[in-house]
Simulated scan of single mutants.
Amino acid sequence: MGTRGPVGKRSDQRLGHRTKAEQEAVTKVPLGGGSPPAEEPEESWHPIAQRWFRSLGESGQRVFYEASDWATARYVAEAMSRNLEAGRFSAQLFAAVMSGMSSLLTTEGDRRRVRVELERAVQTDADEEAAVAALDEWRERLSG
């Protein structure tokens, strides 16, 4: 782990000058928009495995997923389900599941390691915009 922790900072949190190559090394994916269709979990899986698998289709990294990634996710969810339903929890199987989840970039730390950042679209509230416009109009009347 080093003195900076397990993962680096997001690109917008880094200070100082960076080379053009360092700035271009980050792949940013805006959330929302076109993405491949998500697959559905197996009904026989443990509810936690189903929830995890469903979350992959709702997460931003899904835009990178190909058929082989969905197959990997299905395998990881199956292993997760078997471990959760087993009479005795297997630490070795848990480690394998976590490794598979990491390969699918399911956590912020996993994505930072491969320099992928998910950005949420800024949503503006119509009422908020109307309030700002009203304040601007009021300021103009006071100054004029």
Rank of each mutant, 00 (worst) to 15 (best):
101 M>V: 07
66 E>K: 12
80 M>I: 07
50 Q>V: 11
61 Q>K: 03
79 A>R: 04
78 E>G: 13
96 A>I: 07
56 L>G: 00
50 Q>F: 08
66 E>M: 13
56 L>E: 02
91 A>R: 06
66 E>S: 14
54 R>K: 13
99 S>C: 11
72 T>N: 02
47 P>M: 10
66 E>Q: 15
69 D>L: 00
70 W>H: 01
66 E>H: 09
52 W>D: 09
67 A>Y: 01
64 F>G: 06
101 M>A: 13
100 G>T: 10
67 A>S: 11
77 A>Q: 01
52 W>L: 05
68 S>I: 10
86 A>H: 05
84 L>G: 00
61 Q>R: 06
42 E>C: 15
54 R>P: 01
60 G>L: 06
75 Y>R: 10
78 E>W: 10
91 A>L: 05
49 A>R: 03
98 M>W: 02
60 G>E: 02
40 E>T: 12
72 T>F: 08
90 S>V: 10
72 T>Y: 07
52 W>M: 11
44 S>V: 15
98 M>F: 03
42 E>F: 08
44 S>R: 12
94 F>W: 09
50 Q>A: 12
82 R>I: 02
41 P>H: 10
57 G>D: 10
98 M>R: 04
84 L>T: 05
79 A>F: 06
98 M>E: 11
73 A>F: 07
53 F>Y: 15
70 W>S: 00
89 F>P: 00
98 M>C: 07
73 A>Q: 00
96 A>Q: 05
44 S>C: 11
75 Y>M: 08
101 M>Q: 14
62 R>F: 09
67 A>L: 11
60 G>M: 07
57 G>W: 00
98 M>K: 06
68 S>Y: 07
78 E>N: 10
84 L>K: 00
39 E>M: 12
55 S>E: 14
66 E>I: 15
43 E>V: 10
70 W>K: 04
86 A>N: 08
84 L>D: 00
101 M>P: 06
64 F>M: 12
63 V>L: 03
93 L>S: 06
54 R>D: 12
70 W>N: 00
53 F>K: 00
73 A>N: 03
42 E>M: 14
